[in-house]
Design a protein around this nucleic acid. Structure first.
Lengths: 152, 152
DNA sequence: ACCCCGGCATTAAAGCGTTGACGACCATTA
DNA sequence: TAATGGTCGTCAACGCTTTAATGCCGGGGT
């Protein structure tokens, strides 16, 4: 029935790895009270105060509605505040709060520990190779997704 | 503030790649009316008729509640049927329906086209290297997640 | 005979993520 | 001035995913 064995599909390995990464990071960040997405948003927000939600979404590689829900959760916990822009009435400026900075500071070492541990598993050449190969995956897949469908 | 530049985090590259893969596959499967998760479940179901939902969850590397929602959606579309097990009263046997097989047959070439296209971007050595590196990521991350927390 | 353990199924709650559809705003251009 | 296009924010609908908690069943040990 299936035209290709599961073990030969790069996709399954890729998915597996991302899943393991996400699980490890979420577990590490859990005691700080953040999810991976919230951590990523806070990080970019800390480096770019007053950024718009749409720009933040682009930085985190998610869609605006997704970022909206993440920000809503962060706002409910008081880690972030959103104020109307002065001239651009339609834009909300988002800023990390003092409490948000404290939570981020507590969370960062935990996330970094995962990254450093993972990086330590490889030699510099291997890391470079992995990043390059993954980059080629992205390039191809993004092009493929946009390409016309052979049997539409 | 941040102790490690984003671009040096293997995690972001891994996440990017998985996201691109998922987007490409979902786009390819959309015209067949399936999601990636549904496709994966149908594939394992086609190869293992009557498998339990928990076993199917293990095969697809998700949790039982996740598989439950996927199966619920598949069942609502008539692609799958679940009947009580004969002796084991607490177990539901899940089977792909005739309609499910047709949908899977229509979806499979589309998914395979993505996989083959992606695989064609690499030499056999590169594929092997990528799979091996991803495998080491999984090994480390799974161990890390289970390991004791240095500051609990 | 009894009880406990382990696997299965399910629910609830929470969060992430997408597409699609709108309405609002600004700036450029006709 | 008026139309146009691009950006922004948001709602609705849908689906995936996880953790935590509960209930149910069958088998094995005492």
């Amino acid at each position: 029935m299936t035209e290709l064995p599961v073990s030969e599909r790069l996709g399954s390995h890729l998915k597996r790895a991302e899943q393991a990464l996400s699980a490890a990071k979420n577990a590490a960040l859990k005691q700080a009270g953040l999810t991976v997405s919230q951590y990523a948003a806070l990080m970019h927000l800390s480096a770019n105060p007053g950024i718009s939600a749409a720009a933040l979404a682009r930085a985190c590689a998610v869609t605006p509605p997704t970022m909206n829900t993440v920000l809503k959760n962060l706002q409910e916990h008081g880690l972030v505040e959103r104020t109307p822009h002065e001239w651009h009435r339609n834009v909300l400026e988002t800023r990390i709060t003092e409490k948000g900075s404290r939570v981020l500071a507590a969370a960062d070492p935990r996330a970094v520990r995962v990254e450093r541990g993972l990086a330590a598993e490889f030699t510099p050449e291997e890391r470079e190779t992995l990043v390059a190969l993954l980059g080629r995956c992205v390039t191809f897949l993004d092009a493929f997704r946009t390409a016309p469908d052979p049997e539409s």
